[in-house]
Every structure is written in C-alpha cells, then in structure tokens.
Design a protein around this nucleic acid. Structure first.
Lengths: 150, 150
DNA sequence: TTCCATTATCTGTATATGCATACTTTAACT
DNA sequence: AGTTAAAGTATGCATATACAGATAATGGAA
C-alpha cells in the first residue's frame, strides 16, 4: 500500500491548504523581490492593477472581486492611502468608500508593471506550456469548492 | 488576439502569486472552519503533525522542512508553547531549540486529525481524481523555480 | 415621519509572514 | 588560550489575514 493507493488514509503532509500556502509563500517572495525597485509588494501590486483596470471601486466590491475579506482590504487600503498611492474619491452614499489610484499610484503602477511582467515571464517560461493554464483552472476549482456554502 | 494567444502580454489578473494566494486563503478558511472544534488553525495543525511525525526537531530544521522563514517559525512556535501544545526539550547545543509535542499537544492533534481528514476528503472528493496529484506536482514545480537562487 | 432591517465599513484581537539586524553560542584557526 | 567565523535564534518593524462585534448611514415599512 503506497501513495498510489486511493484507499490510503490522507496524510497531513499532503494537506491541500499546506501545499497551497507553501507555494503561495514562495511565489510571494519571488514577486516581492522582483517588485522591490518599485517599492511595492505583490499584494499591493494587485490592488494597483485592479484599480488601474476598474477605475473607481468600493472596498466591498473590490473585496468580492479579489476573494478577500472586506476587513482585510480595509486595512490593506489604509496602507496604500497613507503612502499616497490610492485615495478615497467620495460617493453619494456616505457609507461607502470609492477608491481610486492617485497620480502617484499610476506612476508607481507604471514602474511596477514591467517588473511584474519579468517575474511572471520568468516563472512561466520555466513551466511547461500546458502546466500553468491547467493548474490555474484547478486552483479556481479548489477555491470554488472551499467557498461553497456547505 | 485572445487569451489563447501565447504572444499576448501577461495581464496582472493572471499573476501567479495572486492566484496562489487567493486560493490558499480560501483553502485556509475552509480548513480553519473544520478545525475549529479542536481550537487550532490550519497553520498550527501543520506544526503539530510535523512534530507528531518527526519527534524532536529544531526550529531551523523545521523551517527548512516546511519552506518557511525561520523567524516566522520562531514566533509561530511561541504561540504553541504559550498554549502548552509544544515545548522546548533542550539540547547539548545551547544555540538550538529542540521542539517536541507535549501531552496536551498530542491530545489536540488526536482531536484535530479526524477533523482535518474530513476537510481534506470533502475537498478531494469534489475534485476530479486526476486533478489534485497533477496540481500538487505543479505547485512543487512552481516552488522549486521561485526558490532557485536566480 | 419614526422605527427597523440592511448595507458598508471600521475596530479589537489574534495569528502569519519575511527582511534586516542583533545576539549568543559553538567551532575553527592561529 | 584568543580571535574570529559560522550557526541558530531572537527582535524590531511592517504588512497580510480573518472573525466577532461595533458603528454609521441608507432604505423601506408602519
């Protein structure tokens, strides 16, 4: 009875959460290193690129878009606001914060983009062509299952 | 020119780091919910199961094993020590901390294990058979590339 | 219009993560 | 033995993450 035996009890070392976190950490370190000259982290780059694409977005909508808890995004945004890269542009509805890139945020994104592209390309070119698209699909599947009400 | 075009410039939304972190977060939430009755998180379960398997291990060795920075593990271990689940059993070499499960840690692991198994199985049974082993391999590949000296 | 449920966000608390740097002990070299 | 280099952890600092519960503003019902 070895690992190929489907009846084998799952071993903690095979924990899907552990494997994902571990790989995510390694990838984060990789991108953080690449993005260092722009003085942004991979998480922050995601925020900049989302706003670059979407324009004005509320915290709540953005949280849904990014699959992150709104309370997390609240504080991640605070960091960006403090750094002058993102600002609250106001709204009719006084409850919500409509966020947008500042001029400095746009500049920073412009500096970061090619750095990100290089990091992404370096990774993709080292992976077999077929590998990543299929993996990305599997990740979506996993997220879907994990996030289902059950 | 659509997404199937290999010459298309990479889009930030396809960032490998982002996709991995996002899925890892969802998985972490899934396992944390399942492990709640044992009052441990997925990250902590990993520590318990590692020590259950390995016996006494130093912080440094364990950090290498788990692919995490040693300074991170130092503090994650502090939490477990404070909670009485893991202890420093001492060593000839006064520099190192040899860590081991306490009796309480073993009990907690025993409670957590079936909870984890259920969460793991729930996920695996919803994924196509072929899907996870291939994905796990791809994750290993990605980590390998990200962690290579270049 | 007043009351209430809903929506959007924030705060308190706790953990996880890593880089730069400091500290302590050991080992190695002279 | 004395000096120094290396190894193993720890600390300071900053960010990321989420749950529980609090707050504020909106919209609808009576």
């Amino acid at each position: 009875m070895d690992n190929s035996d489907a009846h084998m009890a799952p071993q903690p070392g095979d924990c899907i959460s552990y494997r994902l976190r571990r790989t995510a950490r390694a990838a984060a370190r990789h991108y953080d290193k690449a993005l260092k000259p722009a003085d942004v982290r991979n998480t922050q780059f995601t925020l900049l690129s989302t706003l670059e694409t979407q324009g004005e977005v509320t915290i709540g909508d953005m949280a849904k878009t990014l699959g992150v808890d709104a309370t997390t995004l609240t504080r991640n945004m605070d960091v960006m606001v403090r750094r002058g890269l993102i600002e609250n542009v106001g709204s009719d509805d006084a409850r919500e914060r409509r966020m947008s890139l500042t001029a400095a945020g746009q500049s920073t994104f412009a500096v970061a983009l090619p750095l990100w592209q290089a990091a992404q390309q370096a990774l993709l070119s080292s992976l077999p062509d077929i590998n990543w698209p299929e993996t990305a699909q599997a990740l979506d599947d996993i997220e879907q299952i994990c996030s289902s009400p059950g």
